[in-house]
């Protein structure tokens, strides 16, 4: 009762990166609240899961292992998570803000009649005093996220309902092993208690999953472009510089929406969060959603022709100039000066 639950996404028999990050965050919240950390894993062939998650500080892992659960399907996963939540009454439940978590978490929240905040960029524990009813609430989950197109930062709470649910994007929280020797308990989920034949109304006929083509998260240098880059052709300059420096190309949402680059390169609240040693922001204005995905970079260079662009304020080096002019110069001088 009253523990923290993390829904673990499974990719080929292992827990996905985003869920490991949430286990790490869940562990630190559990320590603060003095409660246990529990994980839910649903799929087939899950033998490796317990040993994979225990080092992150998991006290109990609920395993639902069944052939019918090989592919992610909304209804069976929802039925199992809702069933476990009703029985165990968690105070907090966290999901990855992936195409799985964003499909599943709202369904669970609706059934539990509880609150859910999408795409949180911070989670904290805090109190709340409700003036209207003169009620003091202790140890609530502060679900913090940019809102309204990134123009405000909202702190959301669910004072009256449990569990308090939130989704978080991959890369937002840091993944960290608590102790390789930490051990927890395995609980096998009694599927018959939760599943009905009607839960299999949707059937996967075909599935083509691509390997991650680009790995911006792991790149030491990210050259990112915004709407100000102006065109797909100008983005080629960014690719040239990134290749030269051994980095990857990232983009702001505006550049992705404009069709300059693929969505998988999007950095920011609704994209990827990166922490490279160098981030070169080209033609990016620096809205808060984009900053949420890159401001922890060790060094930031901004290139923008608007001297008042907010991105310049968080840059170590702010270059006021045209992207199409500055990038070729960087390429030229790098070639000239590197050994």
């Amino acid at each position: 009762m009253n523990n923290i639950f993390i829904y673990c996404e499974i990719e080929e028999g292992l827990v996905a990166e985003v869920s490991l990050e949430l286990l790490t965050k869940g562990r630190s919240l559990a320590n603060q609240l003095n409660c246990k950390l529990e994980a839910i894993a649903i799929g087939s062939g899950l033998e490796k899961i317990p040993d994979q998650v225990f080092p992150y500080g998991v006290d109990v892992v609920h395993v639902a292992d069944d052939k019918r659960l090989t592919n992610y399907l909304t209804l069976p996963h929802a039925a199992i998570v809702i069933g476990i939540f009703r029985k165990e009454e968690p105070q907090i439940g966290l999901f990855g803000a992936s195409s799985v978590g964003r499909d599943l978490a709202p369904r669970v929240a609706s059934a539990m009649k509880c609150g859910l905040t999408a795409d949180c960029t911070q989670l904290e524990i805090g109190d709340h005093y409700e003036k209207r009813t003169e009620t003091e609430y202790k140890n609530l989950l502060y679900q913090i996220r940019p809102a309204f197109g990134g123009n405000i930062i909202a702190t959301i709470i669910n004072p009256e309902t449990k569990p308090q649910l939130a989704t978080v994007r991959e890369g937002v929280m840091k993944k960290e092993i608590l102790s390789v020797s930490h051990k927890g308990k395995v609980k096998t989920v009694a599927l018959n208690e939760y599943l009905n034949s009607t839960d299999f109304a949707v059937e996967v006929i075909e599935r083509h999953m691509e390997q991650r083509k680009v790995n911006i998260k792991a790149a030491p240098i990210v050259v990112a472009g915004g709407y100000g880059v102006g065109s797909k052709e100008n983005f080629d300059l960014l690719f040239e510089l990134a290749n030269l420096l051994g980095g990857e190309v990232g983009a702001s949402r505006a550049a992705v929406d404009a069709g300059f680059v693929d969505h998988e390169r999007q950095v920011g609240q609704t994209g990827i969060t990166v922490r490279p040693k160098l981030y070169i922001a080209c033609g990016i204005s620096g809205q808060i959603q984009h900053r949420a995905g890159m401001e922890e970079s060790a060094m930031i260079i901004s290139i923008n022709n608007d001297p008042h662009a907010p991105i310049h304020n968080i840059a170590d080096y702010a270059i006021v100039g045209e992207v199409s002019d500055v990038i070729p110069k960087m390429i030229r001088y790098y070639k000239k000066n590197s050994k």
Partner: peptide, 28 residues
């Protein structure tokens, strides 16, 4: 069930930035 506890307007906090031009000298 969700309540907004707090709204913070985004205020850009300036870092100590070194401002450069796009001139050859600065870029090199």
């Amino acid at each position: 069930p969700t309540k907004v506890k707090k709204i913070d307007n985004v205020v850009f906090k300036a870092k100590e930035s070194k401002v450069l031009s796009g001139d050859n000298g600065d870029v090199e």
